[in-house]
Nucleic acid binder design. Structure first.
Lengths: 216, 216
DNA sequence: GCGCATTTGTCACCTCAATGTCATCAAGTC
DNA sequence: GACTTGATGACATTGAGGTGACAAATGCGC
């Protein structure tokens, strides 16, 4: 379950927000001062941080906390001036909202920050790839891929155009401790090419492989 | 070099923004309609997208583009209503700004989105060299280089104006243990010159080669 | 300018290592 | 034991790139 840390000293606002967040299906941890926020930091997946706390501006300790554990942070504030928004972003916040704000917009911004972790569907030409069900469809027809092939495919589609050296692929997919020969990589590439003809995997002789980007 | 794709049909705003972006040290590609935006999509590292284009709401085709290549997108709009901000974020945008906005704040938000990245791109005249995809483009057309040629090119472009003796090139590119004749170097220089006419490789008789520096 | 020696440009050829492809084998699962 | 996955090796094929021959260019002494 996704855990959102809400840092807010105002009782009324805090109660409303934490209730709202929980209604959306997230776990919510409500910290009322910097001390509590720091101790809850490590269990959180995302932070909603009020800038004005009793102890002062929370931007002061934000960078330090982010050093310890990087997290997406959405800063809330009553300060509307542009300079102060910029300060917030430069302190490491991922987003910035000015009070008063709509709960729905906050939700949308939370979802943006969480997106890379959660949801999952990829496309490449006539291929559609569902990461959660591990289902590959090609022109609506399902294609069965073996685990290693699937991992390879995901890596390529998520990094279209990037060149991967064989060693790099071995590291990313097989892991540091496994050392199959690089011919193994060739074979898996071959299998991908045979099973999924639309995959334009280019060979860069002496270098590695690369999935050609789809043009607009 | 980081490449920002600006999609904006308003000439005045587009000129101002693209100038500003370039002043900040980014490369800026300015697309004036959806068609141009889609074809420039794959070379971009970040997109600034105006929502109202002549063809209609750009949110319609945004998710499809993001499927092809995921990119951080900052949406610009005149629409101030919360519901429309939420639409934008749900369509896949990473951030949302309402016109009129401060250039400085846009810059800050660009920096936020680029923070995780650190990509490497080189330029020389009409040539653009992407190290991660090993792709060389000359006036938008891709050029295929063999590994040794590619290494040579990188070395020259990263050391513009510096003279390299043949022996030095042999050492840097072929390594200490390999000792091909120096004629081999000549041949590779020849290939580079043939494939990439804008490369101004000067011959210093009796000394070696040097890539002429680009002004500015 | 002329002739010569030297260096460099250009091309065609050849070799060998990198890769594509297939069949087989080992290991794990039910 | 049948089945699936995936690692390996054999063999064919390709292309990178090294080599040398020859042409062209450059520099130098006269």
């Amino acid at each position: 379950m996704i855990n959102i840390l809400l840092v807010e000293d105002d009782i009324l606002l805090g109660e409303g927000l934490s209730k709202f967040i929980m209604e959306q299906g997230y776990q919510c941890c409500w910290a009322k001062d910097a001390q509590q926020a720091k101790s809850a930091w490590f269990t959180a997946d995302l932070v909603i941080l009020d800038r004005q706390l009793p102890e002062g501006d929370s931007l002061i300790w934000l960078p330090e906390q982010l050093m310890k554990k990087a997290l997406p942070v959405i800063v809330l504030t009553a300060k509307i001036e542009v300079e102060q928004r910029i300060e917030g972003l430069q302190a490491g916040a991922k987003d910035y909202m000015v009070k008063p704000f709509s709960h729905q917009e906050l939700l949308a911004r939370i979802q943006v920050q969480l997106r890379p972790l959660g949801e999952a569907k990829l496309c490449y030409k006539a291929l559609s790839i569902d990461l959660s069900t591990r289902r590959i469809c090609f022109h609506g027809k399902e294609i069965h891929l073996k685990p290693k092939e699937f991992q390879l495919l995901i890596l390529f589609v998520q990094n279209q155009g990037r060149v991967f050296h064989r060693d790099e692929l071995l590291n990313k997919i097989w892991g540091f401790q496994a050392f199959p020969s690089t011919r193994t990589v060739d074979n898996h590439i071959l299998h991908l090419r045979q099973k999924l003809p639309p995959l334009d995997i280019e060979t860069l002789r002496g270098v590695g492989y690369r999935l050609k980007e789809v043009e607009g």
